[in-house]
Structures are given as C-alpha cells and as structure tokens.
Design a protein around this nucleic acid. Sequence first.
DNA 1: TGATAAACGAGACGGTACGTCTCGTCTTGAT
DNA 2: ATCAAGACGAGACGTACCGTCTCGTTTATCA
Lengths: 216, 216, 216, 216
Amino acid sequence: MASRTPGRPRSQTAHLAAVGAAIELITEDGHCALTMEGIARRAGVSKQTLYRWWSSPAKILLETLNEGAEQIAPLEETGDLEADLRRFAHRSVLGARGPVARLLTTLMAEAQRDPAFGEAFRAGFLAHRRSIMLSLLNRAADRGDISPDAGLDLAVEAFYGTLWYRLLSGSGPIDEHFADDLTRLTLTHLHRPGPLDAAHAHDERPLRGAQGPGSP
Amino acid sequence: MASRTPGRPRSQTAHLAAVGAAIELITEDGHCALTMEGIARRAGVSKQTLYRWWSSPAKILLETLNEGAEQIAPLEETGDLEADLRRFAHRSVLGARGPVARLLTTLMAEAQRDPAFGEAFRAGFLAHRRSIMLSLLNRAADRGDISPDAGLDLAVEAFYGTLWYRLLSGSGPIDEHFADDLTRLTLTHLHRPGPLDAAHAHDERPLRGAQGPGSP
Amino acid sequence: MASRTPGRPRSQTAHLAAVGAAIELITEDGHCALTMEGIARRAGVSKQTLYRWWSSPAKILLETLNEGAEQIAPLEETGDLEADLRRFAHRSVLGARGPVARLLTTLMAEAQRDPAFGEAFRAGFLAHRRSIMLSLLNRAADRGDISPDAGLDLAVEAFYGTLWYRLLSGSGPIDEHFADDLTRLTLTHLHRPGPLDAAHAHDERPLRGAQGPGSP
Amino acid sequence: MASRTPGRPRSQTAHLAAVGAAIELITEDGHCALTMEGIARRAGVSKQTLYRWWSSPAKILLETLNEGAEQIAPLEETGDLEADLRRFAHRSVLGARGPVARLLTTLMAEAQRDPAFGEAFRAGFLAHRRSIMLSLLNRAADRGDISPDAGLDLAVEAFYGTLWYRLLSGSGPIDEHFADDLTRLTLTHLHRPGPLDAAHAHDERPLRGAQGPGSP
DNA sequence: TGATAAACGAGACGGTACGTCTCGTCTTGAT
DNA sequence: ATCAAGACGAGACGTACCGTCTCGTTTATCA
C-alpha cells in the first residue's frame, strides 16, 4: 500500500523557490518583468521545471494567492449585519494593500491578455470571492435583516467593483476609511432598493444612435 | 502664410492605417497579439513611423479612445437628476459594449503593466470620465436635489467601479438592464448617506494582524 | 556456487532492446535523432540503465558493429593473392551496404565530434580492420607474391580510404563492380611501386606559402 | 542610379565576426561546441542575424571553406603529368593541415548528420574538388600521356579517398611525404590499368551468405 | 528652380523571452 | 544491485518582438 507514483518526487524546494521568486519580481520591479525566464533565473530553477508545473507566470501567482486565501480564518459572524459587513470590508480592504495590491492588479491584467488564464482567474478566484460575500448576505436575508429582493448579487458586484476600481485606477487610498465607505455603500444599497426597481422603463426613451466608444 | 515646418508633412494615410490596424488586431485576435511589429505589418507602415508618433501599442489605442470620446455630443440635461443619471448610465454602458469592451480592458491591463502608460491612462482617461459624472452630480447638488455631503466622489467611484468590474470579470451582461441597475445603485447612495457616515468607529475592534493576502 | 555479485543481475532484455532501438533509429530516421532519450523511449528502457552501460549513443552502435564483425567467418585463403584480395574486397564492400552504411557513416561522424569515442573507434575498429587486411598482404609477401617494400600500409589505406570516401561522399554505388575496382586498384599499387618511391624530391620546388585552406 | 534593395545594408562586420567566431570555436574547443548560440555569443552577433544568413553552423563553415578555396591561384600546368600531379598533391595535402583539418572533418561529420547540408557539401565542395582534379587528368589524356580508358574517375576517388581517410582516421601524418605517396599511388594506377580490367568475373563465385555488418 | 529638411518604406542590427527538446544526474519504490 | 519512472539544473533550439539604426525615396517649404 501507500506507494505512490514511481519516479523522483516533486522537489518542494524548487516549488517554493519559484513561487518566492515570482512574488519578489512583481513586488520590486518597476514594470512588467514577470517572465518564466526571469523567474527561473531568480529562483535558480530550470525553465523546464517551471513549465512542468505551471503554464504561465500568472499561474504561479494565482497559486500563491489561493494558498494565501485558504489560510485566512473564516469570519465568525455575530448576527449583526452591519458589524459583520464592516469586519468583512476591513478584512478585504486590508488584505489588498501593499505587495498584495501589486499581485492582484498583475493578475487582473494578465486575465485580460491570456484567455485561458482569464477563465481560471474569473472562475477560480473572482467568482469564489463573490460567493463568499454573497453567502454572508444570504444569511442576513435568512434572518430577515434585509429583504431577499434587494439585489444581493448587484450589491456584491458593487462592493468588489469599487474596491477593484480603486486598486486598478489609483483613485484613492486603500485604507480603513475606504473600508468604512464600502461598508456604508453596501448597507445603503441593501436597505433601500431604490425607485427604479420595478419600473425598468428604459425603453420609453430609446437612447438611440451610435454614441461612439469610450464611456466608462 | 500658413507655412509650418519644412519637410514632408505627416502622412495622414499612415496614421489612419496604424490606428485602424490596432483596432482590428485587438478586435479579432484571440489573445494579446497587439505588438508594434504586428501593427506595422497589418497597416503596411514601417515600424519607424509608428515609433515616431507613439511609444507603445497602448498609446495608439488610447488616442483612438479619446478621439472617439470627443465625438460624443455632450449630454443635454433636463434638470431631473434621476432622468439625467439614467441617460448617463445608459450611454456609458452602451458605449462599453462590443469591440470597445475589448479596447477598454486591453488598455486597463496595459496600464497595470506599463507605469508610464498607466499614468497617462489614469489621468487622461479615467479621471476625466469621473470628472464628467461628478460635475453632473454637482449640478444636482447645486439645485438642491441631493445633499452636497452625500459623498459624490464615492458615488462616482462606485458607478464606474461596478461597470469596470463587470467588464473585467465578465460577471454579467453589459446591457440596458445593467444600466438601470447602475442608475438605481447610484441614486440610492446619493439619497441615503448611510449610518456609518459620522461614526468611523473602525478601531473599536482592531481587525489587525496577519489576515493573509488576497481578499478581493 | 554459481552466485556471483549480489543484487539483481543485468537484464538481457533491456540490453537487447537498447541495441535494437539504436539500430532502428539510425536506419529509419531521416536525420540524426540518435539520442539517449530517444533510444530509451523506443526501447522502453530507462535512461539510467543506458547510462549505466554505455556513455553515449555511439558506444551502443559500436558494440553492435563489433559484435556483428566477430560473427564473420574468417576468410579462408587460397594462396592466390588476386583471388583472395578479390574475395576480401567483395566481402568488405557488400558488408557496407544498406543499413550498415548508415551505421558506419554515423559512427565516423560521431568519431569526429566526440574525441573519446573517436579514440575508441579509430583504435578499436578502423585500425583493427586495417590490420586484418594488412596481415593478408603480409602473408602474400611471405609467399613472395609481392615485394615487402611495396608499401603495404599505404595500399591498405588506399583500399579503405576509397571505400570510406564513397560511403561518406555518395560519389557512386557500393556494389560488386566497385569491389572489383577496389581489387584492381590495390593489386596495381602492390605490383608497381612507382617511380617516386626513392626520390622524395619534393623540396626541389618548395610549393610552400599560403595556399589558403580547403583543398581536399 | 545603381540603387539596390531598400533597407539597411548587410553589416560586413557582423558577417566577418560570425565566420571568425565559428572558426575559432572549432579550432580551440575540445569537442563539438559548434552551436548557433555559441557562435552568436562569441561573435557578439545576435542569433537572429545568424539565422538570417545561414541555416546551420556548418553552413557558416562551408562558406569559409569555399571562400578560401576561391582565393587559391589556379595551378599552372607544365604539361608534365608527374610534375603537375605532384604539385597538385602537395597543394591538396598541405591545404588540409592544421586548423583546416578540423574544419574539414567537422564538415564531413555534419554532412552525415544533416541531409540538407550533406547535399550542399557533396555537390558544392566534394564534387567540385573532384572535377578539378579530373580535368587535370583529362588534359593529360588529351596529350596522350595516359590512356583515357584508365579509369580516371576511380583514380580521383582513390586520391581524395586516401587523403580523407587519413584526415578522418588519424592513420598517419598529413605531410609532404604523404603527398608524395598519394602522387605515386595515383600515377601507378593511371599507367597500369590492372589485370581485372576486362574480366569482371565477379559472379563466378557468388560470395553468397550474410557476412554480417562492419567490414570497412 | 533648386536646395534643404522631414517623413516615409524597407529591412538589418543586438537583444531578450518564448516554449520545446535533450542532456546527464538524481531520487524514489519495486524486483 | 538493477530496474522503470520521472523530476531536476543546464543549456541549445529556432521564432517573435523589442527598440535602434541605416539606407534610398518621396514630398513638402524656402531661397
């Protein structure tokens, strides 16, 4: 029993060196510079070994990110939506600062350029994060704290959207004040469904014509 | 008079061919493939000519984007905030569909990889877009429709953030229904400042320590 | 008794599979492709096993060649130099056709690239072949059929040289007609020592200086 | 007028550096080591430039060889076959010594491994050399010095074969004495067609049976 | 009417990274 | 001790694109 595959087992040393080198490179370097060649050089690992386990630099980073995320203790909830949401927002915001910010923006950029990685990143990371927050809101809805008709999905998107936008556009600091802003934003939305909710009268005025590109 | 510099004037043909080729490439190609070499090949223009006028492929796209944005007629306002905001949202959302979506995500990705371009993109495009929406809200505040203390900047960030997140993450369709969602979201934020507004009690429970990376 | 070294005995299966795979590869493949990696794959033998017994692909082939040569029955001589030489030439020529031709040229090429193998090939194969032919001629000289001053070494070199040249340069077919040509050539040399034999007047006209490279 | 192709002209510097580096590498290095990568490093030339002009390291060497051969002044003939042949042999032998020897054996080895290069080498170099010597003999036959039935082609093959064999097998020194040996060998063959010339009785005794590989 | 000057196409150049291949070595468990 | 399996560091393969650099040509303004 107990016997696994034959052959030399995977080197944990090389594995860790690769991951560490990738993190170092995106942290310190002024621009891009995240290449398989560079990681191999920095880590003292052969390119072949990298390609054996990962298909691109971004995959190495994504593994790091997911491993790090797994080590986060699950949020114990108090049953008070506002308090829970506030703690969730703080945790999310503070976990996206410093070197991690660079990691996240690099991955988001790579997801746009490499469709295969994009799929993995969207399904394996972004969607997973949304589902965690969504389940938090769902429990609150189950308790009756918020209406289940309040558009929880949209609230989640607005929460992460605003956070990602600040990361990507540098439109402001990623700090505790921002976490509070996100909390307030989300609570507001959950408690006030808004006047347009039932109407959807958007086809009364057709908004016709080609408005040209570039509005966001 | 009218005489300018001596020498052969800039070829409008080559200019347009370059821009057109860049658009074609990001539109049709499955992945990345936006290189100076490729644009030159496609456009029938020499690399030297491209480098004379633009320093990177992204710069060519950015020029396209800004030229397109200039041709959009300014939004005539009715004075009804909800109606105006709804028209603004529809215009923004519908202007980010189709080929333009690809253009936008490519530029956002490039902005993360190339610091010089990132600066230009953030200041020249993203901030400019925010300022347009912010002035819309400011006029409403001047009319007294909303409170000037309502966190207009944050509302703008939430609007564009949610839109960009959907673009980048593919978390849902970019359609008129989404535009209505964005409108409702924004109005809600503007009318209900939210309970946390003055408190900022975030240091009661520290939430500090190593939470690990990767929360968004 | 019967027990020799401890441990698992050498696998005859693996040995034969390796040799067979090497032969197949040089026979069938369009070009080079004779690598340890390829032999291991083809033979279903691990690389480690190959390296344990041979230091290079050429060594595997050389073993094959020498084993094959040992199985050739010694030439029974009639005492008639012309007849014996003719049989020797036919045997040599016909034994260098078909797949063996590829084997020989591959080994000669490898002998130029790998000094260690070159030494083994020159001393263990080429010189050995020459010595066999030389002893044939020596016996003829002992019988008085040819003069011992006739430059037997040179005759042997001319015989094998002409054969190898045709193999390597493809300057003509390797057939029985060629074997006859070689026989006649050799006999001619043996019977007519040539007018320059004693003179060695080569320094009368110096012919020195920079003639540039590349005359053969 | 006289305008040639547009674009930057070929750099003579890079060209010469590449050729020089290739020569240096085969001259000094203990074994193989003739790679495009290595030549590029040594020459300070980019790999792309090498591949633009040559398809393999051997092609670079072949060019050197042919350029060197072109600079050899044609042999002025005296009309005395023995003297002319002797001068030809000396020139050929002395032109195959030293660094050139390494060049020649490397090319012959590569011709066995790379069929495309082999074709170029055989047709462009080996056959050309033979044709030069053959025309020398043909002129002697026209003068009546030798019989045109003497098998001039075979004499040429024996001459070059013996020279190449010594180069490849290291069976003796490449010196003036060897040149004299080659001269005598060739003259002998030309003047004495040999007893087997008309017979071709090689099918009287079939030489049947598998003699196994490896006779040369 | 030239001379001057800038922009143009073409394309070669030294680099760097790509992703693949083979090298020769090593570390497993099984025979 | 030998075997298969297979991971490892090393480095060459041939290609793509980078950004720079000549070239000869074209098209304007200015003397």
